[in-house]
């Protein structure tokens, strides 16, 4: 709707949109602000918004109480590992379905997506037993595998929709030019699909980072990521707003920063490649 509008109209749009934007963002902003307050200021009545004594004390306390770096490292390994492993398995599968479609391709895609609807709790205990049996309980590798499996359908689906946009003739040209299947995927398909692959990678990294069922139920001390780190603050003794806020900020900051820097790919990724 590229059309000249009056500045008044534009100002009105701006005002409404900013008001709504800030309203939606407010809980996050409030959390970040509170993390710099003292506990007393955090629950002061009436609440203080900006004019308080800024302090980093809460961060120090949180760091001391729970080893943030280890949770962070676990989160990075688990989210990153599951995403990369998922991509390695999904790229060939998506290639198959996008470029050599058969009558069953759509059924397979929908079936894959439907596995995501299997309620996790329904199979929690069996997985728990299997994990004990295989020695995977509270290990990062175990979670990498589980999160890869739960996100695999989405990775395949997204890559499939991106690959579909690449004309098959280009891959055929590569074949005529003497490229083997490996060359075709490595030198032609993958570089062409970089934007799509980046979006897929980012979105699934975030989904894995935020996953809070398996990470809470399959980890204890060793492999616990940030979801578990923050969950430990839900117990009543942890209820100090400033510290809770500091811990929350620390848990979400990496993703927020990453999200803001890669907004374009993310927006594309968030639409799951399904809407143009």
């Amino acid at each position: 709707m590229a059309r000249a509008v009056t500045n008044n109209r534009k100002a009105l749009n701006t005002a409404i949109a900013w008001a709504i934007g800030l309203l939606i963002f407010f809980p996050i902003l409030w959390t970040i602000l509170t993390s710099f307050k003292t506990e007393a200021q955090a629950i002061s009545d009436p609440p203080v918004f900006l004019f308080f004594d800024w302090t980093l004390e809460n961060y120090a306390v949180v760091q001391e109480r729970s080893n943030y770096a280890r949770f962070l490292w676990n989160s990075i390994i688990i989210a990153g590992g599951s995403t990369i492993l998922g991509l390695i398995i999904a790229v060939p599968a998506a290639w198959s379905m996008a470029f050599v479609p058969s009558k069953r391709t759509k059924d397979i895609l929908l079936w894959m997506l439907s596995t995501k609807m299997l309620p996790a709790v329904g199979v929690l205990y069996p997985i728990y037993l299997l994990f004990i049996e295989l020695g995977l309980l509270d290990t990062r590798i175990g979670l990498v595998v589980v999160l890869m499996l739960i996100n695999l359908p989405i990775i395949v689906w997204m890559l499939y929709t991106y690959f579909k946009e690449i004309p098959g003739e280009i891959l055929e040209a590569a074949r005529m030019d003497g490229a083997s299947l490996k060359d075709e995927i490595l030198y032609v398909l993958t570089p062409m699909a970089v934007p799509g692959i980046a979006s897929t990678l980012l979105l699934n990294f975030i989904l894995a980072w935020n996953e809070a069922f398996w990470t809470l139920n399959l980890t204890a001390a060793q492999a616990a990521p940030l979801t578990a780190f923050i969950a430990s603050y839900s117990s009543p003794e942890g209820l100090f707003y400033a510290k809770l806020s500091a811990a929350s900020t620390m848990a979400i900051a990496p993703i927020l920063i990453m999200g803001w820097f890669s907004q374009k790919q993310l927006v594309r990724g968030l639409t799951f490649g399904a809407v143009k």
Binding site: T31, N210, A212, I252, G259, Q263
Partner: peptide, 12 residues
């Protein structure tokens, strides 16, 4: 601003 909540993990 509008996208931000999506990045926040459910526990937080």
């Amino acid at each position: 601003l509008v996208i931000a909540p999506f990045f926040v993990m459910p526990t937080v």
